[in-house]
């Protein structure tokens, strides 16, 4: 995973609450067995005019905020509460990443989406509602509005030089900063996992009679 330390980028404001992962990437694009190829389908129903269910040529919807010429190349998504709710599809995060996003800022997220972000080098920042409101106002007032996000310092610097601290869980922060492979980290505890299993097998053996055994 690509490490994340600092990022400066243009901001695009998506002014809707409860943006669900069906909206971020509709189901007809989930049939792939690959981890890539989702970027162009990001926000498909909003981004394209008369989007049909299928892949193929689509005309961009000029009214959708991501399509505004001055938001091209944006890498920071400013969003409203409960962003990423609904389906657990990690494809939503893959699509955002492929479309060039490195940071999302919102007052709150759904938990599964939030946790998926960290597995893919996308930083979801939580700021309080008032602060998010202010950022919306600032972005809408200035074309080419940029933010500087510093994960090391847990701080955002606005276009106007204002510094906004944010909180982030230490485990998530380290994983992002170092671009760590979480599976590798967990496997360092192999002995503890095995010891746990041995103990549990004594206490609750029925938990270990799985389908594979029964199927034999």
């Amino acid at each position: 995973m690509e490490a994340f330390t600092q990022h400066r980028g243009r901001v695009v404001p998506l002014d809707r609450a409860n943006v669900d992962t069906d909206a971020i990437i509709p189901k007809q694009f989930l049939k792939s067995v690959k981890r890539t190829g989702f970027g162009e389908s990001l926000f498909h129903a909003w981004r394209y005019l008369s989007p049909s269910e299928e892949h193929g040529e689509h005309r961009l919807n000029p009214d959708f905020v991501l399509n505004h010429p001055h938001h091209q190349g944006a890498s920071i998504l400013l969003a409203r509460q409960n962003f990423g709710c609904g389906s657990s599809r990690e494809h939503a995060v893959w699509a955002l990443g492929e479309a060039g996003f490195r940071v999302v800022i919102a007052p709150s997220y759904s938990e599964i989406f939030f946790s998926n972000c960290f597995k893919n080098g996308l930083l979801p920042i939580v700021l309080d509602e008032n602060m998010v409101d202010q950022l919306f106002q600032q972005v809408e007032a200035l074309r080419g509005y940029e933010l500087m996000v510093d994960l090391e310092a847990r701080q955002i610097e606005t276009h106007h030089g204002q510094r906004i601290p944010f909180e982030i869980n230490e485990f998530h922060r380290t994983c992002l900063l170092e671009g760590l492979d979480e599976i590798g980290l967990t496997l360092q505890h192999r002995d503890e996992i095995e010891a746990y299993e041995a103990r549990r097998q004594e206490q609750a053996p029925w938990l270990f009679h799985g389908p594979a055994e029964a199927a034999e």
């Binding site: 990690e90 995060v93 599964i112 597995k119 979480e182 967990t186 505890h189 996992i193």
Partner: peptide
Amino acid sequence: FGIGTSEVEHVMATQCLVQH
């Protein structure tokens, strides 16, 4: 609880998840 695909891989490989 529901998990994302990276976590699916994590469970397959380690039988564990990092959770809060």
